[in-house]
């Protein structure tokens, strides 16, 4: 089987659908999704933070799921990607319609430097899509606590400014 796999192995281009636009991306060399977004496609709204999946600055949606793009190998991506550039909608008259999370961040004037803010908003948007009426009860995570290693229970987003 392995031999057959080698025989058919080749460098390919893969299609990525990002914010409704389809891009043709070389599969090779293996690299994280974040590098493709920032360096090849110029979607620099998604930020590089720790590079290890800790801080959440690089969070994007893949089929609505919040994913840390700095630790997501490009070739494992299957599904529609949404980045911060695609979180707001462009109305027909050209005005930008902010996502409710963005609107809330705007009204509260949330951040300082805003470097990790796009990741925070993407995480919040994905969470709210699944939990439209969150209760804020932290005890509900007790089941998670039993299953997940300790480092996952650290605050999910880290702002260091």
């Amino acid at each position: 089987m392995i031999a057959i796999y080698y025989l058919t192995w080749d460098w390919k281009n893969m299609k990525l659908r990002i914010n409704g636009t389809e891009y043709d991306i070389a599969e090779e060399p293996p690299r994280p999704l974040l590098w493709v977004l920032r360096d090849e496609l110029g979607l620099t709204g998604t930020k590089f933070g720790c590079g290890a999946g800790f801080c959440g600055s690089c969070t994007v949606h893949i089929d609505g799921e919040a994913v840390r793009s700095c630790v997501t190998p490009l070739t494992t991506v299957a599904g529609e990607i949404r980045t911060i550039e695609g979180l707001s909608l462009m109305a027909e008259d050209g005005t930008i319609q902010l996502h409710p999370v963005q609107q809330a961040f705007l009204e509260d004037q949330v951040p300082q430097c805003s470097w990790c803010m796009s990741g925070q908003m993407m995480t919040a948007a994905a969470f709210l899509a699944k939990n439209p009426a969150p209760t804020g009860d932290r005890n509900r995570r007790s089941d998670e606590r039993k299953l997940l290693p300790l480092w996952l229970l650290l605050p999910r987003e880290k702002c260091s400014c």
Binding site: T44, G45, E85, S88, Q102, S114
Partner: peptide
């Protein structure tokens, strides 16, 4: 903040974003 909307939508360019 005067620069907030561009940061909200990911359009703001930081030094680290310059290519």
């Amino acid at each position: 903040r005067v620069d907030f909307e561009s940061k909200l939508t990911g359009k703001a360019l930081y030094g680290y974003d310059m290519r």
